[in-house]
């Protein structure tokens, strides 16, 4: 009864450094190369688009850093989790976003990235690049670009423009 069917192998065994972090009791990893800096919560400025964009309600703060404005995403909100107690901020590289997380653990290497099973059909397909197995635990590898997608950046620009227009008017 046991059929030996070929399973799609995990993607190439090139080692990737990742940072382990937690949000609302769940563990995640993010590519170390996607993170520019890990820091505390000092310097955050409250930010809200009010009812202009409910879609961007996950943006809670901004952070000014070296002349760049980073939009701060609440990871618990992003992953539809119960509100958590963030204490660390991951400033992302190449996109103007930073991510509030409860804690960061350690940097480690993964040698295989397993595809997210096809059984998962909802938003998580965008949230994750895949899954990693770390010490027997299955941990999602986040897609850092999903924290503030290109569409969301566009919506943000439009909403800010409307907000500035309304203020000027």
């Amino acid at each position: 009864m046991r059929h030996k069917r070929p399973q799609p192998p995990p993607s190439p065994a090139s080692r990737e450094d990742v940072i382990l972090f937690s949000v609302s009791g769940f563990k995640f990893v993010i590519a170390a190369g996607a993170v520019h800096e890990i820091r505390g919560l000092q310097g955050l400025q409250p930010f809200s688009l009010g009812c202009i964009s409910v879609q961007l309600a996950k943006l809670k703060y901004t952070l000014e850093r070296s002349g760049t404005t980073y939009f701060v995403v609440d990871a618990a909100f992003h992953f539809r989790l119960t509100p958590s107690h963030p204490s660390r901020l991951l400033i992302l590289r190449n996109i103007p976003a930073a991510v509030l997380v409860d804690s960061t653990d350690r940097m480690m290497g993964i040698s295989a990235l397993h595809g997210l099973p096809q059984a998962f059909t909802h938003e998580e397909r965008g949230w994750y690049r895949g899954l990693a197995v770390m010490d027997g635990d299955v941990v999602p590898v986040v897609n850092h670009n999903a924290f503030l997608s290109k569409t969301e950046q566009e919506t943000l620009r439009e909403s800010l423009g409307r907000l500035q227009g309304a203020t000027a008017g």
């Binding site: 769940f26 539809r80 099973p117 059984a119 998962f120 949230w127 941990v139 999602p140």
Partner: peptide, 20 residues
């Protein structure tokens, strides 16, 4: 781990494979 697919309750790790 967090996801939004109601029909999936999690995954098992079986002989190196991740099984929904």
């Amino acid at each position: 781990f967090p996801h939004c697919t109601p029909s999936v309750s999690g995954v098992l790790l079986r002989r190196g494979k991740i099984v929904p």
